[in-house]
């Protein structure tokens, strides 16, 4: 029997408060969670339940008010700014609800923007092929549909072969058919590259594509459930 690999993330009593005194908003009220290597985790919960705050802290975009966020041995809560930037550069791939592509760069160039600064990236074309966009590499964002733009964003996120892929409502702005395409791209990345993936959604159906489902409410984790079987995005209906 071999020892299990160490977890990718280890969160200890994580708290995040915005504002002070009576106006204080407690976004996270003591979250404990462990995320294993290669796992696809779905964070489910209503708006304002704290899931986006958690994702931002995991991505090194925000810092907790109290507690610890370990990425392997690095405590993101206390690491210096430059260290956190380096963590983002080498380990994190982001996918956002509104794509956030650079309008002045083509699909391939948006991906190359990241591969230029990564240590062991895959070629931009390969990343785009992985999300089914091999034919659209030279198009500018303005020439692509919403779904295509989101898939470029996913290609950009995975091209650096990140350790973790963080997706915040990746299908939020898309229709069902397009959303399925996007989720397939995320699942493909997770399966082929063994990228630890966290997907935020408030759509309970989508939760079925993950290994585990973490339910959020009011800044705390209400439950963590293991899906008996991951289903393919193709089988989703919502």
């Amino acid at each position: 029997m071999t020892a299990a690999p160490p977890p990718v993330f280890r969160l200890e009593n994580l708290r995040k408060t915005y504002g002070e005194g009576e106006a204080a908003v407690h976004a996270l009220r003591g979250v404990n969670l462990t995320v294993e290597e290669g796992e696809l985790l779905v964070l489910l919960g209503p708006s304002g339940s704290g899931k986006s705050t958690l994702l931002n802290i995991l991505g090194g975009l925000d810092r907790p008010t109290a507690g610890h966020t370990y990425f392997r041995d690095l405590d993101l809560a206390t690491a210096p700014d430059a260290e956190v930037t380096r963590y983002r550069r080498l380990n994190v791939g982001f996918v956002f609800q509104f794509y956030n592509l650079i309008a002045s760069l083509t699909a391939a160039e948006n991906v190359e923007l990241v591969t230029e600064i990564a240590e062991n990236p895959m070629p931009a074309r390969e990343a785009l092929a992985l999300v089914g966009l091999a034919a659209r590499t030279h198009h500018f964002p303005a020439q692509l549909s919403g779904g295509e733009q989101q898939r470029v964003a996913i290609a950009r996120a995975i091209a650096k072969r990140p350790t973790v892929l963080l997706c915040d409502e990746p299908t939020g702005a898309l229709d069902v058919a397009t959303g399925v395409h996007v989720l397939k791209a995320i699942v493909t990345a997770n399966e082929r590259l063994r990228t630890t993936t966290l997907v935020i959604t408030h759509n309970a159906d989508i939760a079925r594509i993950g290994d585990r489902v973490v339910r959020f409410a009011d800044g705390t984790i209400r439950s963590v459930e293991k899906n008996p079987q991951r289903i393919s995005p193709d089988e989703l209906r919502w």
């Binding site: 650079i102 002045s104 760069l105 500018f140 303005a142 733009q149």
Partner: peptide
């Protein structure tokens, strides 16, 4: 709003732009 549309520059400029890094290309295209 639709994303700002960035057409390609003239062929000569694009060829030169190929040697630029992504950040510089953003600047030139803007």
């Amino acid at each position: 709003p639709a994303p700002t549309s960035f057409g390609r520059l003239g062929a000569t400029v694009e060829r030169a732009a190929r040697n630029l890094d992504g950040k510089t290309r953003m600047v030139v295209r803007r």
